[in-house]
Design a protein around this nucleic acid. Sequence first.
DNA 1: CGCTAGCAAGACAGACCTGTTTGTCAATAT
DNA 2: ATATTGACAAACAGGTCTGTCTTGCTAGCG
Lengths: 205, 205
Amino acid sequence: MLDRVPTNPAPGPRSDWSTIGRPARSARERILAAATELFCLHGFATTGVDTIAAQSGAAKSTLYKHFASKDKLIEAVLEAEGAAWRAWLFTRLSAVEGGPQARLLGLFDVLEDWFADENYYGCPYINAISEAPQVDERTRCLAGTHKAHLLTWLRSQALELGRDPDEVARVFVVLIDGAIVAAQATRDPIFAQSARDAAEAYLAQ
Amino acid sequence: MLDRVPTNPAPGPRSDWSTIGRPARSARERILAAATELFCLHGFATTGVDTIAAQSGAAKSTLYKHFASKDKLIEAVLEAEGAAWRAWLFTRLSAVEGGPQARLLGLFDVLEDWFADENYYGCPYINAISEAPQVDERTRCLAGTHKAHLLTWLRSQALELGRDPDEVARVFVVLIDGAIVAAQATRDPIFAQSARDAAEAYLAQ
DNA sequence: CGCTAGCAAGACAGACCTGTTTGTCAATAT
DNA sequence: ATATTGACAAACAGGTCTGTCTTGCTAGCG
């Protein structure tokens, strides 16, 4: 349960959007990459800065020269990983052929590819909020701006369909979050298709 | 983010199903209640056993006499809180008038009441899994048996409707988990109704 | 060569963690 | 009245945490 983070954890390949496993040049990039991997795979609270420094090949003093505190490093990881994920998602979505309905449904096929990654660890923002359910207003704020990007896209698709943007966006947020969490808990990507089924029925209504 | 647990955190009232805030008699019950509150509100890793012992009014030695380790205490909390939640949910569901469809949709109204609790902290199992996304097979197993209870109920309702039980159950799991997480991240119970909308469309299909 | 700047390595402080142990006290049972 | 049980209080051991600071190496440059 609360096991210490192993010294040399899963290095395996990752989805092409993540900074994990990519060759990183500067010390700052290496630190950020190592922090992302360790935080996301083993949790924020249970990962120590010593482990991050060791895995990144940087000294702890270098880490603290680039990031004022562990909390700031966590924030940087969340922002970087969130931006990378959104860029990957929207790139994939722009390749979907068809109108807004096809794009909205295609979203779940993209998610399924994400879930199928052997190192899939869920949404870092959801994980961060789950670590401190009650307090942690800063993380909630970061997650809010992350989700706002997704909401904007969802609303624009709903508008193209001539449907209520807020209502559609909320339903899709539920379906997306639900698929993310169910796939994480069970390690089964099938829930992406279950979410797609529900989305299809909802849009056909 | 990783703030220490305050010495005297939110004591406020809770949903009637939870052990939190209820007068507890034996030392074991007091420890379990304090552990549930602190773990669920502030996270499992960031809550120390000293804090739990202090809040429960019990000595640490007493805590370790009843629970072999912190991990075992976490397991006991998950099992107790899960059982209490299921008992509450199924009691509420049994009061819903109408057939299986009304019960399946009424589930989201019950969830909305849960989300509206000012101390709502999400699903302890989801939170526990999110704390250590990759490892933590024991927690995943506990969450699996918890969710199995829900799946059994969902499947039986689907069978009564003459629909594919596994398919319906998976869709509803996505909707339930999604509503739980979205409500937790935004503190807005409205997502229960969004999930209900999607469920209605799916069942009408 | 000599100098400097940057970084790795590691010691360190102060706090917190889990889990154990010892001693004391009160209530109960025999 | 004595023995037993249960619980509290407190200290302790051994380890980890974050964050700071010092030391020494090395690479680049005049």
